[in-house]
Write a protein that binds this DNA or RNA. Sequence first.
DNA 1: CCGCCGACGGCAACCAATTGCCGCAGACCC
DNA 2: GGGTCTGCGGCAATTGGTTGCCGTCGGCGG
Lengths: 346, 346
Amino acid sequence: MGETAETGSSRTRPTIYDVAKAAGVAPSTVSRAFSRPGRVNADTADRIRRVAHELGYRTSPIGRAMPDGRTALLAIVVADLTNPFFFEIIRSAEKTAIDAGYTLLVVDAHESSGAERRALERTLPLVEGVVLATSRLSDAAIRAVAKQRPTVVMNRVVADVPSVVTDNAQGMRRAVEHLAGLGHSRLTYLAGPEASWADGMRWRAFREATQELGLRARRLGPFAPTLAGGLSAAQALTTHSATATVAYNDLVAIGTMRGLTRLGIEVPRDLSVVGFDNIFGSDFCTPPLTTVASPLRHFGTFAVQRLLNQLRSPSAGPSVATSSGLSAPALLPAKLVERGSTSRRP
Amino acid sequence: MGETAETGSSRTRPTIYDVAKAAGVAPSTVSRAFSRPGRVNADTADRIRRVAHELGYRTSPIGRAMPDGRTALLAIVVADLTNPFFFEIIRSAEKTAIDAGYTLLVVDAHESSGAERRALERTLPLVEGVVLATSRLSDAAIRAVAKQRPTVVMNRVVADVPSVVTDNAQGMRRAVEHLAGLGHSRLTYLAGPEASWADGMRWRAFREATQELGLRARRLGPFAPTLAGGLSAAQALTTHSATATVAYNDLVAIGTMRGLTRLGIEVPRDLSVVGFDNIFGSDFCTPPLTTVASPLRHFGTFAVQRLLNQLRSPSAGPSVATSSGLSAPALLPAKLVERGSTSRRP
DNA sequence: CCGCCGACGGCAACCAATTGCCGCAGACCC
DNA sequence: GGGTCTGCGGCAATTGGTTGCCGTCGGCGG
């Protein structure tokens, strides 16, 4: 009991020096026993490990980080942690990071550029690299981040910063073609946050696709990328004559459907609704949502892999990356998932 | 351009030494200029701050952390980041942490005790305290964590470790009373993970409540606390004669409803379903789910506050906390939200 | 004009780990 | 048996920021 109580005290953690003294070796030997397998005699290493375990020794990342600055930490900053869009992204990013020996910190920006900036200020010094998932920061701010740490942006293109994006144009085109095929000719786009790069891309693609197909295109918004935003959108839609609508994302689409139902407008009988992202919940809402599916799982993996690439070739600064093509956006395909929220024009 | 490119290089961040050289003072003066207001002449301090800003200097938490071990970091470990149950908890915990001058790291345990252990191993050394939200670790493992760092557990009671829990018994009682009031007399509980403390509590409360009210209680499971788990539960339910069921949580409940629908069983006409937690999506699934609502927002706030209390009184070790009542579980009330998934017995 | 006091800034130690370099000792070869 | 090679472990420097202690310089009072 005595030793456990003594060593288990959280007052001051044992250091390599304590371990070294207890094992009768030099501190450097202890360090090597842990971080340089083979460098130390197996017997000695075993003894050190045993003693260290008895003492409850844990390597302190503080001391470890100093000599080379390595913390083995990465961060992913998401616009909104509660948005199911990020689920698979975070999962896959985490897995990729862990497989590479890194720990991934998840940071929530609360859909606010201010909060995002503050969170980055706190986190950036800790980590070796960062993934900005649908950042709400300005391009300049993102470049400033990229200057401090290897950075990958997601769902956005910023000059000289590596990025991973969905093929929004392709996805939007599929959606519009789908609706046109169902006989709809008056389409409305429900816009997302103005600071969203993806929103701009989607609206542009929407306009282009509708124009090519000779459909009438209108735009409503911006709306918050949430269920509540969708409710407002439903209200706004009542003044429109459109028979089909494409929403900035699934949350807005689901919110819109709920709002429409409350207003006595039936989906898809009276109005067809298409979402974007294929998030958790889009298949069990009523009706199940037709949506443009992003390859969410690949997103996180790709982004972290690009980050790891940057970390592995530290000689290549941002500018070099440009010339070597490292910062060219990786374009991930999108496909349309047809469910129950769209039907032939009434 | 020259200076920006030069100083902005991510090669090596400027240190107090660089700032000191550029400002023509000693490193210690730079340090004091930032961390000890008044100690340095205002003019000198201003100059240092200006130079530091020009150089893009940012104080490194690594060096700072060393003398006193403070990192201003807390961590919350959640069983499953994609479970909407944790949304509000994380949000509120984060806010409380930030307000107190801490940064909260969010760590995902992937519903696996192994992953949880590994994640903790990586994270624990970094942080000053940790919130274990519905941990899948053993009591012993949790106590080991609590020995290393101030710890608060959520939705679980571990001897000598401060905790915050929902009043599962009360919530379950409300649910059972509600179903009894609708004329149901044969109830089935759909169990969650065996490692879940909450599951044990809910099942016990279910048995007690049904017994008191003279109802027949059965138990199915365990099922994974996911939509998929709910699908299996639906299959299993077909062999039961119950007319009402209470699920371990909302995900299971929603999954069950989907499975039942596929099997041609209509909710609530043929079977009433009650969930637990009132998560995102429980209001827009079909039918909207009757569920026991946990005060999610208070959860995170409470947990972090208890953690901060421990941090502020570092003299009080775990054992002292016991005697001072600090580790007595904080019991948060639960209420029943009646929606469309329950109705009078057919 | 001298002495005292306080403000300010520098020197150097410190924290916890890593790592280059060196030296010692044992093994092996000739 | 001597020389060399290699494996292993220790010394000491290094990293970034903080802090105790001390020296210096200026102002001000006597």
